[in-house]
Computed example of a mutant assay.
Amino acid sequence: MDAKEIAFEKDRGTREETVNTFVQGIKDCLPTLFGYISIGLAFGIVGAASNLNFIEVTLLSWVVYAGSSQFIICALIAAGTPMLSIVLTTFIVNLRHLLLSLTLAPYFTKYSLWKNIGIGALLTDESFGIASVKAMQEKRLGDRWMNGLNLTAYIGWSLSCMAGSLFGRWIADAEALGLDFALVAMFIALLVLQLQQIPAGKLRGYILLILLTGVLMAVLSQFMAGHTAVLISTVIAASVGTVIIK
């Protein structure tokens, strides 16, 4: 190996260490924290309106750690739904996390089982979006960076839910403040960031797959629950995309 190759390998190693740092993971999470904060506050307010006390809201944010599921749980509790039905509904709604984890799993095969469990347990839709963009840019992901990303999101979400529960007694309608739209806006921003990283030659194919997913969801939702339609539509579109790419 000549001097140029040695210098190149050293520079590449330096870049990898810079990318795979806990602090960089924190920095990459910061833009999405505004979405976490607004939705977390909204959930805390909704939880308080559903007669959940501060401890109950806190435990939901720590243990369930899924915005859509936490809102559904509040609605089911308010409707007097049996506990078993609440658990099963939460399980089905969160099944999409299996698809998200499977997508990122190839980047973490060199790490231990316990590290992968820690990474997967704190993976969310938003952190998946950020990690997907990072993977397209850098062609790799590191455990330290992913932990910085996940823990920042987890702490931000938990604190926001707790704050919302404390102030919920003074806010009667979260939707009047537009807080319910923050999650949708954050997903749109993450989608745009992902599309920007796709080469122009492949962009059309990805857009067609998105449209296919939307059409499938619209059709299937007429015959089954919305969250089930999302899962099936995603699997079908992903399968079609895999065949096309190959």
Rank of each mutant, 00 (worst) to 15 (best):
Q197H: 10
V235C: 10
G80C: 09
L211C: 15
F34V: 14
T109C: 07
A3L: 15
V192G: 06
A105Q: 11
D173H: 14
I73F: 03
N150Y: 11
V230M: 06
V57A: 12
T124R: 02
S239G: 12
L102K: 04
G201W: 03
F43M: 13
G25C: 08
I245K: 15
R169E: 14
Y107H: 13
L195V: 11
A200S: 10
I188T: 07
W170Y: 07
D143H: 10
L95P: 10
S127N: 02
S61E: 01
Q197Y: 01
T124H: 07
T242S: 14
L141Q: 08
S239R: 01
G164W: 01
K134H: 14
A3S: 14
Y154H: 09
N53K: 05
L220Q: 07
P106A: 09
Q70W: 01
E16I: 06
A42C: 15
V23C: 11
T58E: 00
G164L: 00
L216V: 01
N116P: 12
G226S: 09
L84V: 15
V19W: 04
V230N: 06
V243T: 04
V133K: 14
L166A: 15
G80K: 06
F71Q: 00
A189P: 11
F223C: 10
A7M: 05
T242E: 11
H97C: 07
F54P: 09
Y36P: 12
F8W: 03
A3I: 12
M83I: 12
P31G: 07
R144W: 05
Y206T: 13
E126K: 02
M162Y: 02
V57H: 04
V19R: 11
G226D: 09
S221Q: 06
M83E: 10
I92D: 00
G44D: 06
G80W: 04
A176F: 03
A3K: 13
N147S: 13
L177A: 12
V235N: 02
I188A: 15
I210S: 12
G168S: 05
K115S: 03
F223G: 08
L102A: 10
S85D: 02
M224N: 10
T32N: 08
M224R: 10
I245T: 13
L99W: 01
I188C: 15
I92C: 13
G80N: 08
A66G: 11
L183F: 09
M162K: 01
G164R: 00
A75L: 05
L179K: 02
N20C: 06
I6P: 08
P106F: 03
A185R: 01
G40L: 07
L84K: 15
G25Q: 09
L122N: 08
G214H: 05
C74F: 04
L166T: 15
S50A: 07
L30H: 11
S101Q: 07
N51T: 14
D143P: 14
